[in-house]
Write a protein that binds this DNA or RNA. Structure first.
Length: 586
RNA sequence: GAGGGCGUAGCUCAGCUGGUAGAGCAUCGGCCUUUUAAGCCGCUGGUCCAGGGUUCGAAUCCCUGCGCCCUCACCA
């Protein structure tokens, strides 16, 4: 009996732990022998409570019910039935198939690190000597069984946790009887806890030579093929819980995502920006032109919109006197799905009072470079993205909207007559309903139609580039350039052909802003459906806020999902979202 | 929205111009105390996405539907 129950928050919990600690692989920190290794707080995964508290909540309570009830046998797949039978067999031995709290578990990575060559050599030389004291370290690890080789009286298991795989040997001679019998009943995919000495096999593989093996959870579903892994992208997205353990590189991407977000957040805070949270449920969905999701609030009996951008609220904060603010959170846009778009996506928006477009361009460039450096580690911040190699160290390029236009079409964008002719040539479908449509279109929209067709593709995708000097007419929240009001103080960062971040010198004159809003609404009435117009409402409170006085400001929005795609070399947004939007099953 | 591709055992995938549905891994039974995708022997396993059609005969050809992927279009 190695453990005694420690005081627990709940009596029921204490009883369970006592039961468990009496089990074969039970472990309790109090009886640590000198060479016993416990976890250190070396990474985010090891923070207090992270690993352990997951065992303490309601889920545990639910899973602790000792005799699971089986569904109707005819509805169960044969492979699942066999696994259920193994679970019952383990329960019949007195083991708890769904385990319980276990303290002192360390990662497979750490277990590998504490391997002691000297102690192992000494053991191999002296193990037959009477009174010899084994100095090889004792560890407890937990993980999914991803490989199993049953040699009869010796069973090799590979346990996988979030840090990697580690081999466990369960021998009839040295493991306790319950542990050995459990090993015989273990299916691939089960979560087990192994305790034993860390040694090296003849072939040099670090291995935990088990003295105890305990169940932690049963995998009733046959796991993916052990070598090929899970390839079916649909199952990977729909059942991310399988993907994450069956394909370690998936977990890697999401660990990196978390580190990138944390890094960007720390960078912003380091620059003096205050992180805030503004409403996601809004009575008017403003700050961008996109179709919002509509929902309904019962208590007030009003329709609400999921936000499409936090912009108008963040600007209200500048009015209130907050000098620099940012928010990293979800936006929702009721639009299509593709490799770069998910209906909910994460955006960093930041506003800098008394700054301008240049202020926030520098901010974005530095933040992106900083994150890239973290990913690159010691080397230069040069990262692959598909076939491209992107250098984040060198200064980002700049090219004006007008120059790209000219590069693409061979004439200046000020030649609007020629632009109309060009658009008629390329887009006859625009004339289908109204032969004069293009002649009636606003000149700036004509130019922008053409620009979006071919302008961005003039860029070198491997060079992060700011496109500057957008036309004012397509930038309603942006201040026009003082020396040329037809152009706006706006710059968009493009990397690898993706729009990563727009930057603006924000409009802060309430009268100009109001006029632009009205103009925009007018334009919408002409060519958008009634349904779409329902959400293009005039935000009077925002104008009122500007009347109170907003300092001049620079603002930017950085697409976090796309940044993560770039830095982790994932070609589709779905590979950087844990649970991408999928059509419901059935 | 248009075009293309894919959907076969739990998983990864073959299956040719139409002729009894296959492999590897997993599972199941047997042997094995230093294996490395363990090995050896034996066995199982299918709504070929769904529905309809052509045909003596359909996983295969045709039509419709569903799902996923890709390209394009739409999208401040």
């Amino acid at each position: 009996m190695r453990g005694r129950a420690r005081p627990r928050p709940s009596p029921a919990g204490a009883a369970r732990i006592r039961d468990y600690d009496a089990g074969p692989a039970g472990c309790s920190p109090e009886d640590d022998s000198p060479q016993r290794y416990k976890g250190t707080e070396s990474s985010g995964w090891e923070r207090p409570g992270c690993f352990e508290c997951a065992c303490r909540g309601a889920d545990l309570r639910r899973s602790m019910s000792d005799t699971p009830s089986n569904p109707a046998p005819e509805s169960i797949h044969k492979l699942e039935a066999q696994r259920r039978a193994n679970r019952e067999a383990a329960a019949a031995l007195g083991l708890k198939p769904y385990g319980g709290r276990t303290d002192g578990i360390i990662t497979s990575e750490l277990a590998r690190e504490v391997y002691d060559e000297a102690a192992n050599t000494e053991f191999n030389a002296n193990s037959k000597t009477p009174g010899y004291a084994d100095r090889r370290p004792v560890v407890t690890i937990a993980g999914r069984v991803v490989l199993a080789r049953d040699n009869g009286k010796l069973i090799w298991l590979s346990l996988r946790d979030h840090t990697g795989d580690l081999q466990v040997a369960v021998s009839q001679r040295e493991c306790d009887e319950m542990g050995f019998r459990l090993a015989k009943l273990t299916d691939l995919g089960d979560v087990v806890i192994a305790t034993g000495r860390v040694m090296k096999t003849r072939t040099g593989e670090v291995t935990v030579w088990a003295t105890g093996l305990a169940p932690a959870s049963k995998c009733l579903v046959p796991p993916p093929e052990k070598h090929a892994g899970l390839h079916d992208v649909e199952i990977r997205y729909r059942q991310r819980y399988v993907d994450l353990w069956a394909n370690p590189e998936t977990l890697k991407v999401f660990e990196l995502r978390s580190r990138i977000v944390a890094r960007v957040r720390a960078f912003m805070q380091g620059r003096g920006y205050l992180e805030v949270e503004t409403p996601m449920l809004q009575t008017l969905a403003g700050g961008a032109a996109a179709r919002p999701f509509v929902t309904h609030m019962n208590a007030l009996d009003i329709d609400l919109f999921m936000r499409i951008a936090p912009e108008l609220y963040l600007k209200r904060l500048l009015v209130g006197g907050l000098p620099r603010v940012f928010e990293i959170n979800r936006n929702f846009r009721n639009e299509g799905l593709d490799k770069q778009h998910n209906p909910e996506f994460t955006m960093l928006e930041a506003y800098h009072a008394h700054g301008d477009v240049e202020t926030v361009m520098e901010l974005t460039e530095s933040a992106v470079r900083d994150a890239a450096k973290m990913i690159a580690g010691d080397g230069p911040a040069v990262l692959p993205f598909g076939d491209l190699t992107i250098d984040y160290d060198r200064g980002f390029d700049r090219v004006s909207y007008g120059e790209l236009f000219e590069r693409a079409y061979g004439f200046a964008m000020t030649d609007t007559a020629r632009a109309r002719e060009e658009l008629k040539k390329h887009h006859p479908h625009l004339l289908k309903n109204n032969p004069r449509a293009i002649d009636e279109m606003d000149a700036a929209l004509v130019i922008n139609e053409l620009f979006e067709e071919k302008g961005e593709s003039q860029l070198d995708p491997s060079r992060p580039t700011f496109i500057t000097d957008y036309p004012s007419a397509i930038s309603p929240l942006t201040r026009p350039k003082p020396d040329n009001p037809a152009l706006a103080d706006r710059a968009d960062l493009f990397i690898a052909g993706m729009e990563i971040a727009p930057h603006y010198t924000e409009l802060n004159d309430p009268d100009v802003q109001e006029a632009k809003f009205r103009e925009q609404l007018k334009g919408m009435d002409a060519e958008t459906s009634a349904e779409e117009n329902t959400f293009r409402t005039f935000d009077e409170d925002f104008i009122r806020a500007l009347k109170v006085g907003m300092p001049p400001a620079g603002g930017m929005g950085l697409g976090i999902d796309r940044l993560v795609m770039l830095l982790t070399n994932q070609r589709t947004i779905r590979d950087v979202l844990l649970f991408p939007m999928m059509r419901p099953e059935e």
